[in-house]
């Protein structure tokens, strides 16, 4: 019983904190963010397992976490508003040469981040080659390039 409560508490807490941290906070855009994620996972593991290293405890915790995920996915499928609150929605930050500065400020994204995503994923060199930049629900920036022969 204690394992299940521990699992539930930590799941809820992580969900809340990661959601409050915002789309971009742990989007793994830097090496340090990856390190931070590893530290958080290690801390979570210690708090969840405590001193009980038995197989039963491990199985119970895994089951609890999976049950939480499945239940939430069912609820999110049924209630779209809940899905928005838990998973967020994508947000367009760059649109045909226009940069949505207010949205970018809220998400703590700058022009450099858009250009970095454009270079990494599309091999683009400058903003003129970008049609749209969208911050996806996982915090990654999706770049849609302008295509030649198609109006922009």
């Amino acid at each position: 019983m204690e394992s299940v409560i521990r699992g539930l508490l930590l799941y809820t807490f992580l969900l809340l904190v990661f959601r409050l941290a915002g789309k971009r906070t742990l989007a793994q855009s830097t090496n340090f963010e990856l390190v931070l994620l590893l530290i958080i996972s290690e801390t979570t593991q210690q708090a969840m397992v405590d001193e009980d290293h038995s197989i039963t405890n491990g199985l119970l915790l895994i089951l609890t976490l999976m049950a939480c995920t499945i239940s939430l996915s069912l609820l999110k499928q049924r209630y779209r508003t809940l899905e928005k609150w838990l998973d967020d929605v994508p947000l367009v930050i760059f649109e045909n040469g226009h940069m949505h500065k207010d949205r970018m400020d809220k998400l703590r994204v700058d022009e450099g981040d858009i250009l970095a995503a454009a270079r990494q994923h599309q091999g683009l060199q400058n903003l003129d080659e970008i049609k749209y930049a969208v911050v996806e629900r996982n915090g990654k920036i999706a770049i849609i390039p302008k295509r030649t022969g198609k109006s922009g």
Binding site: P90, N96, K106, Y132
Partner: peptide, 27 residues
Amino acid sequence: IGELEVGQDLKFERRWWKFERTGWILL
């Protein structure tokens, strides 16, 4: 948004930003 089909919801986003800032204060 233009040619882009994206589940953007600015009304929700603005509400979320307020909630997020309140959450930060609580944390």
